[in-house]
């Protein structure tokens, strides 16, 4: 490839007027530092019978040298497209260079020049070259050498130095997140329909189950059994009327429902053990039980349940 490059430079120049060039160069010409990418767009119009030998286009990664020393500007990317017409061909070449040099003081470097080879299609032995002119830019040091007041040394080509607000933005995000969590916590504590943690508790499951049960004797039995199961799972032991005090002592969240729990066990007694016994939950025990389970669910979630009246 180097040989081809040498060959390009030894070829005769193309006749004037055969190639016209138009370039779009970056506005900023100074202040580049190591790592910066500079883009340049070149549009060539080549009249017939000359055509561009596309293999002569500059190669990505090729290190340009000046007097045997690497100049530190490297072609990072090239995009080439062409539009052919009867009498001429238009080539659009986008060149992206990257700076790989630095210095303690500003220094000039050049993008290019790039040499392209053309061929005369009517005389295949005639090879000529075309030189895309170089673009001079200045590379600046990363840090200022010595004690310099930056404001006095600012270039008019540099954008103004803005105060960095990254830290403030980070803390703002943290604060907003904390506020959101706090609001969710308040919603959970004060909400009637808490849906955050402890959602899958025993009584929550029982409540969902009971809602689907029919309002008849079988449904009531199943509902009571589901509530018993929830009590047992909450207490991690079987809960009966004779160890209710122990249950409430171990689960103080349920202390608000002491009388309702006794009513529930009275209902269970009547349904499961003593049909002639009286319960005190009113005429619609299924509905009462649904409300009671909801209250228990609230207790399970650490909320204070609203009271219900018998027969609701």
């Amino acid at each position: 490839m180097q040989a081809l490059a040498i060959d390009s430079q030894t070829l005769p120049d193309v006749d004037e007027g055969v190639v016209s060039i138009n370039t779009i160069d970056p506005y900023k010409r100074v202040g580049y530092t190591v790592g910066d990418v500079i883009e340049r767009e070149v549009t060539l119009t080549i009249k017939a019978p000359y055509k561009l030998i596309e293999t002569s286009l500059p190669i990505v990664g090729y290190e340009k040298r000046y007097r045997g020393k690497v100049i530190g500007i490297e072609l990072k990317n090239i995009e080439h497209s062409k539009v052919e017409h009867k009498d001429y061909t238009t080539h659009q070449i986008k060149l992206a260079y990257q700076v790989f040099t630095n210095s303690v003081v500003a220094k000039n470097v050049a993008l290019g020049p790039e040499y392209l080879n053309l061929i005369n299609t009517k005389n295949k032995k005639q090879l000529v070259k075309y030189r895309i002119p170089s673009l001079d830019i200045a590379v600046s040091p990363l840090s200022i050498f010595g004690q310099v007041k930056v404001e006095n040394n600012m270039s008019q080509f540099l954008e103004p130095l803005l105060i960095k607000d990254d830290q403030e933005r980070k803390w703002l995000k943290v604060a907003i997140s904390a506020l959101a969590v706090s609001l969710l916590g308040l919603l959970y504590i004060f909400g009637k329909h808490a849906w955050l943690p402890r959602m899958g508790g025993s009584f929550a499951k029982a409540y969902r189950t009971i809602k689907k049960l029919p309002n008849n004797e079988t449904g009531l039995k199943q509902a009571i059994s589901a509530v018993h199961l929830s009590f047992n799972q909450t207490a991690k032991m079987s809960v009966f009327n004779d160890n209710l005090d122990e249950f409430i002592q171990n689960n103080p969240n349920f202390s608000h429902l002491k009388s309702e729990i006794s009513q529930f066990f009275g209902l269970s007694r009547q349904v499961y053990f003593e049909p002639n016994a009286q319960h005190s939950v009113g005429n619609n025990p299924s509905q009462w039980l649904l409300q009671f389970t909801k209250q228990c669910r609230d207790c399970e979630r650490g909320l204070i349940p609203t009271t219900i009246k018998a027969g609701v």
């Binding site: 053990f273 003593e274 002639n276 016994a277």
Partner: peptide, 12 residues
């Protein structure tokens, strides 16, 4: 004063 046995009676 009950007419049926409850689990509480068994526990007793």
């Amino acid at each position: 004063n009950r007419n049926a046995v409850l689990p509480d009676d068994i526990h007793a």
